[in-house]
Amino acid sequence: MTHSLNELAALVKLSAKGAGYSWGMAEEASYAVRWLAAANLPAPQILACILNHQSIAHRELAGPQIDNTLWIAGKTPMCPLRTGAALSDFASVLSTAGPIDIGPVNWPVALLPFICLASQSVDDVLSVSWGGLYFECRQGVLAVNEQHWSELQHQALSDQSAHVSCQLSVTQHQRPLKPIERLTLRAEISEDCLAELKSMAARTYAPATEASRISGAGAGTTDND
């Protein structure tokens, strides 16, 4: 069963809130899932993994602790959504002097939407690499070589946490890279994954009471005329 990206993004916003993120981070999660799905990556599953992990942690997963060019995790690997949002927030103060080392980060594939967002606020090329995969981004367009892209598609879901290197540089990579374009406007969601996201979203719904049925929506007078 395919879903529209709007539908998926709306569901993930609520799921992220239900999993314990703030509303503002839930907006970022919603953006990330839409981006990943449009790039034909298994977005709902990636988000379900991240949110599930968060849900078990019962607190907004620690963002990075930043010490100049070193972004280090606390006791557990960093959440890619919080790290990604921080990268986007700090983008315009990143320096071209050297790479920043980030890690370890869970499901680093979820950093990619934020690298794109971050690159919109810098003139230079923003590159990110982990586990032998290399991506670079200029003005919101992500580029990668085909082999790395295919590897990413195969391993996007494996629960690897990785150390990530992020670098702002003036010139682009020498090797020919292929821009990742919007590939689809629909998302495939398995029944299990849908049920998981819906159950997290359901935590944001207030149990119905008779009072809410009558007064909450404001009806109660006849509407059958």
Partner: peptide
């Protein structure tokens, strides 16, 4: 808040109904 029953936005009384967590 959004009610569990119909997933629609509703408006409630914060100090009279158990809705603030939602």
């Amino acid at each position: 808040y959004v009610s569990e029953e119909k997933l629609e936005p509703r408006l409630g009384e914060r100090f009279e109904e158990p809705i603030e967590p939602y």
